[in-house]
Design a protein around this nucleic acid. Structure first.
Length: 428
RNA sequence: GGAGGGUUAUCGAAGUGGUCAUAACGAGGCGGUCUUGAAAACCGUUUGCCGGCAACGGCGCGUGAGUUCGAAUCUCACACCCUCCGCCA
């Protein structure tokens, strides 16, 4: 959500930004919202004046009543009542117009960073850098579910029976490996100065509508029947929700948090859960990181965040690359975003394991996350988020990259303490 | 789940229909006087949002609705906190 004042003063910048994102159908919204805003302000001015008059007259009535001048008071009362109808009308208009304005402003994309490559869709995303050697062994790598099953670590049949498609039982060493990765990732982030946090796994509708559109909500969020609660799709939502409608003293910034949570997603729409196995599922676990900082520091933190994920994967010897999201593929709230992708020696390509985003002040404006500056001036914070690791999916990369020809899996040194000293997981 | 009490500014807290958001009183913060310096004392100052170049005006006393010429104050719903009872890992 961009600043309405900015739009009013720089409509051409906003229009060019919309063009850069290949959303030309939204171009008329700029003039539309300017006209609505103009009308809104005139309604507000007239309404404010009437409310001001009413306040004055009401005081007079009070004074007259106190003096016992009942008839005069009644005459003034009539004046107020006469204006009431117009005022009610104006109040309705004010509400109606500010709603319309807000609705449009939510759909006008955030101004993208000048460094974002211009492109229509995900096919035009740009590889930034590779880390590690993407190797393809000379033996065949099975599908990840086959690897897991051969190690006695996955039971999809039972999961389907108990919960349906899109759920899994992880078993034995694979389940332990999953937990080991989460624990290791948690400690990795704590070592880098982040504060560990376990947030609520359910959030109120008020928070949900603050962080996503109705369409997104419908496609992702599970609602608890009979309660005003939704299961989180990512802990980003409950983490950022921590700061909704707060004014943070400048010296308390940056807030750097890393959170653990299960995540629940309906995955309704575009992809569904057609990918077999544990790639796209209704329930998974994730270690996340978020930062709330001063505006001038968000580019620095953006680089820190994706670098953390890259470093984490490299300590487990998984080759990764960073892929810069092009303008057309960038979500409307984001200023800039890079995906971290892990190497799949089976598919001989990289696939997404995390996504790092700088939202500028757009999310903060929407959620009223402000900073109290040293000079007493208030301004909106910048917010960023990134996946540390989401194990069921990253396990695919992990297993494929650490698989030996005999079907066993090497445990990287960094994970061994979390696996009771095990160096290898052997076939059953 | 049931009963009772509560939610006011940075904090504590008064305010039960108009001169109480110009929010008593106390504390804290900031500026000053005094002091070699500090403390104490004294004086001043100290909320957010919206509109406006400004003057100024409007809104905000947990949230939302309602009654009223006028609501922190009355009514209703909801949220949260405290105490007790019940249930429970």
């Amino acid at each position: 959500m961009i600043d309405l004042k900015f739009l009013r003063e720089n409509p051409d910048v906003v229009r060019q930004n919309i063009k850069n994102k290949f959303q030309d159908s939204k171009l008329p919204l700029v003039d539309e919202v300017i006209a609505l805003d103009d009308a809104y302000r005139s309604f507000k001015l007239e309404g404010d004046t009437l409310r001001g008059d009413r306040n004055k007259l009401s005081k007079q009535i009070g004074a007259l009543m106190a003096q016992g001048k009942k008839e005069e008071a009644e005459a003034v009362k009539k004046q107020v009542t006469d204006a009431a109808e117009r005022l009610a009308e104006l109040e309705k208009l004010e509400e109606e117009y500010s709603e319309k304005i807000k609705k449009i402003m939510m759909t006008i994309p955030n101004i993208i960073d000048p460094s974002v490559p211009i492109g229509k869709d995900d096919s035009e995303n740009v590889e930034v850098q590779k880390y590690g050697e993407p190797k393809v062994p000379d033996f065949e790598i099975p599908y990840h579910t086959d690897i897991m099953e051969s190690l006695g670590g996955l039971d999809l049949d039972s999961a389907r029976k108990v919960a349906g498609n899109g759920f899994y039982y992880l078993m034995g060493d694979i389940a332990r490996l999953h937990s080991a990765i989460i624990s290791y990732a948690r400690d990795f982030m704590i070592d880098r100065g982040f504060t560990y946090c376990i947030p609520p796994f359910m959030i109120r509708s008020e928070v949900v509508t603050g962080v996503m559109s109705f369409a997104e909500m419908d496609a992702m969020m599970y609602k608890i029947e009979g309660e005003d609660l939704f299961l989180i799709g990512t802990s980003e939502h409950s983490m950022i929700g921590k700061f909704i409608d707060t004014i943070i003293p400048e010296d308390k910034l940056p807030q750097t948090l890393t959170s653990y949570s299960p995540c629940f997603r309906k995955e309704k729409g575009a992809h569904g859960i057609e990918e077999r196995g544990v790639y796209r599922i209704h329930q998974f676990e994730k270690q996340e990181m978020i930062v709330v900082c001063k505006p001038e520091q968000s580019p620095y933190w953006f680089d820190q965040l994706w670098q953390n994920t890259v470093d984490l994967f490299r300590t487990m010897d998984i080759p990764v690359r960073t892929l810069e999201c092009c303008s057309g593929d960038l979500a409307d709230l984001k200023v800039k975003s890079v995906d971290v992708e892990a190497w799949s020696p089976r598919q001989k390509k990289y696939f997404e394991v995390g996504s790092c985003s700088n939202l500028g002040d757009a999310q903060a404006r929407r959620l009223k996350i402000r900073v109290n500056g040293k000079d007493g001036k208030k301004y909106f914070a910048h917010t960023l988020n990134n996946t540390v690791v989401a194990p069921p999916r990253m396990l695919i990369a992990f297993l494929e990259n650490n698989l030996n020809e005999d079907g066993s899996i090497n445990i990287p040194k960094v994970l061994q303490p979390y696996m009771g000293g095990k160096t290898v997981i052997c076939k059953k």
